[in-house]
Structure formats: structure tokens, C-alpha cells
Amino acid sequence: MSAQASGEKKEFWRWKEYNWKSDEIDWRKGKIITAGVDVGSVSSQAVIVVDDELYAFSNQRTGSNSPGSAGKAMMWALEGTGMTMDDLHYAIATGYGRVNVPFTDRAITEIACHGRGANYMYGGTVRTVLDMGGQDCKAIHTDARGKVTRFLMNDKCAAGTGRGMEVFADLLGVSIEEVGDMSLEVEKEPPPVSSTCVVFAKSEATSLLRSGWDKEMVLAAYCSAMAHRIVSLLERIGVEKDFAITGGIAKNRGITRRLEKELGLEILDTRYDTQIAGALGAALFGQALVKKGKGRKKSLA
């Protein structure tokens, strides 16, 4: 009997969905409260910022209903805070689904938001930000205040992104949270798979498995192909220190270690969840816009 028929089908691509709030901040004493919602292709986050400090956030999967996911993420971030939508002075949407979020006042591109978010998460020394999301990859240069000075985006393709990693986790039956570490457990680095295209790489991986490669080797070959692809993207824009990665792939040490090796520099570490960078940046822009008197809060019917 197949695993599915016995009801034991495991979803290896699933990562932890959760929410968080600060115990140190009393939002009722805050002057400016803003929210940022990042509706991505794979995940959605909502972040609440009180007087330029991160107060609460939620991180979950984007379902097939993108406006619904935005609302759910927002409600989840508000959960347990005693705050309601009416307490927000400004809400900004970003990410793929940004134009389709009914309760926000404005949409800002994820390029601007990731630059600003990375500046908060990693500090003002960050000059190069690589946003590796579920479905594409963007290289961004920022100044000391997090303003974008140069960016590069390519046409959309899931090659070498989070979604591709999820497909691989599922193919090999390894949890998405373990694929990175597992790919480092090889004695000798195998040659990278010849294409990062998820469809091609998947069939190549299948034939490698059939020829006797173990899971670790196949994962190493895929991670290394992804790292190569990112390096070729970064070469075009140039990597200035300090270098930081945002988005879900930043949690995959199989990619980050290989990138560090190829680029010959260290990638900054952060205590924050790298997936919230976009929503955090959006909320921080909200703060700046309210201070500029640009807060034009929609009446919340």
C-alpha cells in the first residue's frame, strides 16, 4: 500500500508557521503604529512596528487565496496584542500580491522594502542585500540608511529559489528545514546539477538517485548549482561588504556556506527571522511616511 493510501503522506516541504510579539514594548504608549504585509509567492508575513521598533509579526504560507492570506497574516500578527486594525496609523503592502491587499493604504515594491528591512535587521553597514524568496531572486545595493542605490531583477523563474528547494525536499523525503545541513554532509563536493531549472533538475536528481547517489550527494549537487546561479547574478551588480541575505533561503546553510566560499566573504548573521525583511521594511516605510505627513489612512469600514 502506498504511503498516501495509508494516510501517512508526509509534507516534507512544510516549514514552521508562527507568530511572535515583543514583551518589552507597550504599544499603547507608542506614538506611531504601522503595519507591513508581504504577500509573497510562497509565504506571507505581517509585521507591526511601534515607534521604529519591531513589535510583532506572523509568518505563514500564502494559500491560493492571496488577499485572504494577507488578512490572515495580519490577524495572526495582531493576535494576543489587544491591538486592532483601527489602532494602526498606516498599513503598507509589498510582495507579488501587494496590489491585491484590501486593507492596506499603499503598496511599495519588495525591492525598496527588503533594502529597508535588511538595514534594520543587519544594521547600517549592509551594502549588498540578496533577497531570495520563493519564486525569484533580487540583488540590491543600499546606502547607510537602507535606501536602494542599485538593484537588479530578472524575469521570473523558480530556478534556484525557495520553491525549487521545496520541490527537492519533497522528492528526497527530507524536511525543508534539514536539506541545507544535510547537503553539507558530503566528503567530497559533487559536480553541480547541470541546470537549476526545477523541472530539469528534478529529473536529473531522479536519475542520479537511480545510479546510486545518496540523498546528501544529490542535495549537495543542487545546492551548489543554486549557489553558482546566485553568484552569476551577483557578479553583474558587484558585491560590496557587508553582505546580507533576506528571505527564506537565508536559513539554508547548504546555500549560504557555499556562497561564502565562492564569494570569499562572510554573510552577516541576524537574530531576526530573515523571512520578515520585506514586511518589516514596509512597516518602517509606513513610519517614515507618517512622519512626513504622508499618512493618508484609509477609513476602515
Binding site: 535606501k147 536602494v148 542605490t149 542599485r150 538593484f151 537588479l152 531583477m153 530578472n154 524575469d155 523563474c157 552569476s232 547574478l233 553583474r236 551588480i237
Partner: peptide, 16 residues
């Protein structure tokens, strides 16, 4: 800001 919009085809990456 230098904004790069690009694509990749069989012969490489290109940007405006």
C-alpha cells in the same frame, strides 16, 4: 538609483 531590469535566455543574462 541604478535600476536593472533583465532577462535570461540561452546566451546569457541581459539588462536594461
Amino acid at each position: 538609483m541604478k535600476a536593472n531590469y533583465g532577462y535570461r535566455d540561452g546566451s546569457g543574462d541581459y539588462f536594461i
